[in-house]
Design a binder for these strands. Sequence first.
RNA 1: GCCCCCAUCGUCUAGUGGCCUAGGACACCACCCUUUCAAGGUGGCGGCACGGGUUCGAAUCCCGUUGGGGGUGCCA
Length: 472
Amino acid sequence: MSSAPRFRFAPSPTGFFHVGGARTALYNWALAKRLGGTFVLRIEDTDEARNQPEWTQGIIDALAWIGVRQDDPTFQGPYFQSQYAEAHVEAAQRLFAEGKAYYCDLTSEQIQERSKTNGKQGYDGYSRDRGLEAGPGRVLRFRVPEGQTIVNDLVRGRVEFANETIEDFVLLRGNGSPMFLLANVVDDITMRVSHVVRAEEHLPNTPKQQMIWDALGQTPPVWAHVPVLVNEQRKKLSKRRDKVALEQFRDEGYLPEAMINYLMTLGWAPQGETEIVPWSTIERDFKLEDVNHSPAFFDLKKLAAFNGEYIRAMSTDEFFEAAQPFLVGENIPWTPAQFDEAKFRAMAPLAQTRLVLMTELPMLVDFLFLDEPLIDEDSWNKTFGSTDGVEMLNDAIAALSTGLDWNHDSLKLCIEATGAARGLKLGKAQAPIRVAVTGRTIGPPLFEALELMGEEQVMKRLRAAAERLASA
RNA sequence: GCCCCCAUCGUCUAGUGGCCUAGGACACCACCCUUUCAAGGUGGCGGCACGGGUUCGAAUCCCGUUGGGGGUGCCA
């Protein structure tokens, strides 16, 4: 094969972008990039009942999010399978003319009936030699030849299929429209696809498709079937019961770099001791021959760990930029007018190490912008359920009202001393202040936050908490 | 049922006949650090599914068993 390889990714637009599809796309993309080839995007929209045009943009956007960008010269498409229907039918007719396919008028009920009586599973080739012409309700079936079909797969090796185990499958439906097996092959031929890299669930289709390639007088492509992604029950990830929409991960605050890196490690591992590697390394080292053979569990916990790593690895400026989309919107407790960019910028580095998802960011900094903290009742009850907590708060108010320098060092010393007077360590002593000011027992470093908020705001909140306790 | 694929810690993997007393990562546990929570550091737990071969030597090669998975549509 002397010319540059042509890879393809051929999703059907069914609503959202599946993480399994994302990984397959990434594999194809990495290879196309490294080998100086082409990545063809083809939308398989022939199942009219299930397709919606707007899903196509969703696919393009999702691909762009994981770095498979339409404006990259490696990228070609999208093509739409529905627009090649004529070529599919033409190819089918050629096969019919050459006796490599034949028409059959049996309904699926009749086929079932026959298999019951003759004991054979599936279609038995009933119409093979009946010499039927095309007609309404008649399907065109491929005449599976004798012998065996050998699929040479880059990740599986040599896979043999006895042709007698493959029934004469349908090429054209009764209404004349092409089926997936045919359309897929004809398009691959048309688009000069040289490498078909797809999920393992397609392996049983491969001998059939290879026979179509052969029958059409074409050299089959290089096949590679990569393991499927599974859930905790070891079943193929399904949209019904599993969380698989790439868009959802994006919206929940997963970084694309983390998602890309994680997806690539499912079935493959970069050299060396670390799995966290930049795309450039992946692109340079990824090979199909190194892909694992067994299904991989899509582990949310590990994905989350990757995401945390990637968040922490950002520079302060990068983090600030990445945070922007997560600081506005309907789930944000503060109004745009309340937001204070300077305060956020000061707090951002302290929040950065405390995040797994970007969507967790607001609850770490919301108290900076709100007029009053959002009180978490559990935190409140836990902290002020004891007299220690209540008295510590009152002591702190007194101690902080003595005109100390309002910076985190002296604030810390002050609270430390106040707590010590009551026999409390700093960890215990700071809790009532934290809850009164931020509303929660956990959050970013307290004294830095107090400094940032300013004396007036802090004292106001401490007194408000004391009043609430007094009136309770 | 039939066809096909797969099998290393709980999970993702490294390993391509001797460097393996099986390495790393996630998760989990303990300790350290500590301003809560994280992060970070140190250590720990834990695996070659089983049985036969081949070989001086097997996680690695072969066969079988068992166990998982995928496919079996006039879906893609």
